[in-house]
Design a protein around this nucleic acid. Structure first.
Lengths: 264, 264
DNA sequence: TGTTGTGAAAGCGTTCACAGCG
DNA sequence: CGCTGTGAACGCTTTCACAACA
């Protein structure tokens, strides 16, 4: 039990910064790996390296949870795993529905990491009647008509939207009306939801565009003969090849571009 | 990167904050939708609403790109589409390889938004010899042995890793050694890369855990009889049901929890 | 007049650096 | 002595509010 304080009073859990919350799963994963190797304690330095952050940030993050470390020693791995799990709400069961069982929805249903950590796929839902009854990842797909009933019966509070963009807002509204208060959105749309409902979005296209921006910047710098950050010259990078090929990546097609193939 | 003042005359493209870059694709999507509806101009207020941000932020973001608006009128949709596309580097072709053609990799290959906006799936790569030659999304899968050759021949600078966690670091190293300088990582691992290589990660499990944290907080507040944010009482939410069921979500299992099911 | 573009202020998040403690 | 926990400094991001201007 380490520091007595397991009670409840000082938990200041109200004030955990969002940035810290977003990193807790990272720490948890690193700690779980240590736990499996039966490592008893870990220093902030080691754990930070495993989680890909710096140690000052990690210590500050942990300080929001309470004082779970021991000065001169480090953190008890098992104890921290438990504390973070509890803080994240992973000591309870979270039934989840996935709506939209296309390529992506099916992949999500099959994703192992989904099932671990207290998340349970309670139902798969699709608008296509032909899908109904067909098992995906061992779970029979149900029709959208059943959505409200499923949410209510299973006590689902987390919904995953993997539908095409055009259907997402409507699905979202039905989920929320049925009682869902957290949504993970894979559809490339901005969802509008009432206050009190959390939405997180995962958008492949956006991630790629951000990478492209930096890629272009690298190419431009190489073309301009700027100082190359160490590693870049280690091997002939694609950016370098690209830069050699044309003067500036920016000056390509005149305008008629961006054909808007799909609801990106 | 590369500290200094690369040349680049007025475009002050050097100084675009990361937070702004991350929103440009959002604006671009909203603008593309307007463009398809042949809307000629749009105000910061309207566009911000469509993109799900507030107008002050949007104007500040655009101010980093230059002065592309007209006071008293708004922004020219087509012109902005072009400017943002150019800024993001989307006026050129970006060949991309996807490594790891399991459920997720296949879903990504089939994802339409991938192909749009200048991203072209140059190759699908998998370590399983049985996959070799099998077409996925119309593209034959190639064996990992070919990785370096493909990267070089196609001039690939962006790689997508959709392998199991255990293989990700090794794949990453091969990609980087072959010349890839931007990586989108779907494997639940922290990748370590040399300077000059950008990594963005998409982690389903982490997103769910973040949602669970907020879900738990909602349940706790409801149980404690705290003020409920307007919409939450509109209907009986799952959080409310959950809160009614047990005292506080935090006080569940005593300790022996967290069985560490998988490398989440 | 209506809307942009932007200094200035406020708010967050990160990093520093070291006091405090085991 | 070693490592945690944290106040203080710093830098980035958002928001405010209004001058500039078509």
């Amino acid at each position: 039990m380490a520091t007595g304080r397991t009670h409840r009073p000082a938990t200041r859990s109200r004030g955990i910064p969002e940035a810290t919350v977003a990193r807790l799963p990272l720490y948890l994963r690193a700690l779980t790996a240590l736990s499996e190797r039966s490592v008893p304690t870990v220093s902030s330095e080691e754990l930070a390296a495993a989680a890909g952050v710096n140690s000052a940030k990690l210590r500050k993050d942990f300080s929001y949870l309470g004082s779970y470390g021991t000065r001169g020693v480090g953190y008890d791995v098992e104890y921290l795993v438990y504390q973070i799990s509890r803080e994240l709400g992973l000591t309870q069961d979270w039934p989840v529905v996935i709506v939209g069982i296309g390529n992506l929805g099916a992949a999500l249903a099959n994703y192992g990491g989904f099932a671990s950590r207290g998340f349970r796929v309670a139902a798969l839902i699709d608008a296509d009647p032909a899908m109904a009854g067909k098992p995906v990842a061992g779970i029979p797909v149900q029709h959208t008509d059943e959505l409200e009933k499923i949410i209510q019966d299973e006590g689902v509070s987390i919904g995953v939207i993997a539908t095409p963009a055009g259907a997402a807002q409507q699905v979202c509204e039905r989920l929320v009306a049925a009682g869902v208060t957290s949504i993970l959105n894979f559809a490339p749309t901005v969802l509008s939801v009432p206050d009190g409902v959390d939405v997180r979005k995962v958008d492949l296209s956006i991630e790629l565009q951000i990478l492209a921006f930096h890629e272009q910047r690298k190419a431009g710098e190489l073309a301009a003969g700027a100082v190359v950050p160490a590693a870049a010259s280690r091997q002939e990078t694609a950016a370098a090849r690209r830069a050699a090929g044309r003067e500036s990546a920016a000056d390509q097609g005149p305008d008629g571009d961006v054909p808007a193939v799909m609801p990106t």
